[in-house]
Computed example of a mutant assay.
Amino acid sequence: MESNLTLYRIFNSVAATGNISRSSKELFISQPAVSKAVQTLEDNLKMTLFIRSSRGVRLTEEGALLYEYTKSAFDTLSEGESTLLRMKELGIGHLRIGVSNTLCKYILLPYLKDFIKKYPHIKITIECQSTYKTLELLGQNKIDIGLIGRPANLKGMDFYEIQKIEDIFVSTQAYLDNLNQQLSKSHRRKPAISPEDTLDIISNSNVLLLDEKNITRLYVEDYFTRNNIKTNQLLEVSSMDLLIEFAKIGLGISCVIKEFVQDELTSKELIELPLNPPLEKRAVGFSYCKDAFLSQAVKHFIDFYKERSLR
């Protein structure tokens, strides 16, 4: 564009008012400056845009055509400014959150329920995938916030812990009784399960774990390696919900998150197997790139979860 936006803005004002004096007052610049700007634009375009007279100015055919475009452009800009102000006043915006299916169901949904009540105009997009994929999308600025288990290396990420989770092994009492009968053919096992029994049970059971692309799976396998635990039969499952359901039907021993099976443990539908040493609790929280641009919607959500965690 050979002529800058200021020249078109002055042209648009003169065309709308039909008078250089009124345009000067509207734009808060001198009449000579207005006249010079119009002349400069005409020189740049190499055509006459106005016919001057003692009563003011009127558009030429070329000027009228150009005015159709400048009026549309400046009306669009004005509408854009109004929309931005309305977004700011009403809290309108777009928030993109990355999270695993498990954390989405058990942790994120309660946050979103209260957040939406406070900011009903914010559009929310949920990307459900593994923590590793969430971290990748954060690094590519394809999502704004990630709800993740704290990784070993945050690599330029801000992480705000909201709770701890504990990984445990569970099964039905019927499955344990049946396994106990098989393992005690040579000697009778004690009714109560000790941590030492658990290691023996895991080594001789169907062990159900999340698939290899999950950060929880790597955490558990690291525990197995450090404690020299061998598994006889390993079954991979794609979600925490399936791990819980398969354990409840007696398919084997599932590694699940304790906070998500409290009802089943209380009713004794599932039995927790004691571990020594236990799996250390892990931190779960919201994360975002420190150098990323934070929209108003993202800032609202950050303030929201920090405020909620203090209650």
Rank of each mutant, 00 (worst) to 15 (best):
R150A: 03
N19T: 00
P110S: 10
C104G: 08
M87Y: 15
E26C: 00
K190Y: 04
D114Y: 09
N178K: 15
V220L: 15
F293N: 14
E196M: 01
R22L: 13
C289N: 14
T83K: 15
Y223I: 00
D222W: 01
C104V: 00
V298I: 11
L7Q: 12
Q31Y: 05
N141C: 00
L84K: 15
Q233V: 00
K185N: 04
E259P: 10
R86A: 01
K258F: 09
S30M: 07
R217V: 00
T40V: 04
K36L: 05
N153L: 13
A192S: 10
N276S: 12
D303C: 05
L138A: 03
Q296G: 05
T266V: 02
N204F: 02
T60S: 11
K88M: 06
L137H: 10
K88T: 05
S295G: 07
I20K: 14
K88H: 11
Q39Y: 11
L108A: 04
R9E: 09
R217S: 06
E81L: 05
G56V: 01
I193T: 11
A33S: 14
G252T: 03
E212W: 02
F159R: 07
G80W: 13
H121Y: 15
Y67H: 12
N101Y: 11
A37I: 02
R189T: 01
K268A: 07
L208F: 05
L41G: 06
E79P: 04
N4R: 09
I202G: 00
N227L: 01
R282P: 02
F286L: 03
I168L: 10
L154D: 09
S239Q: 04
T17Q: 15
E42M: 08
S295K: 10
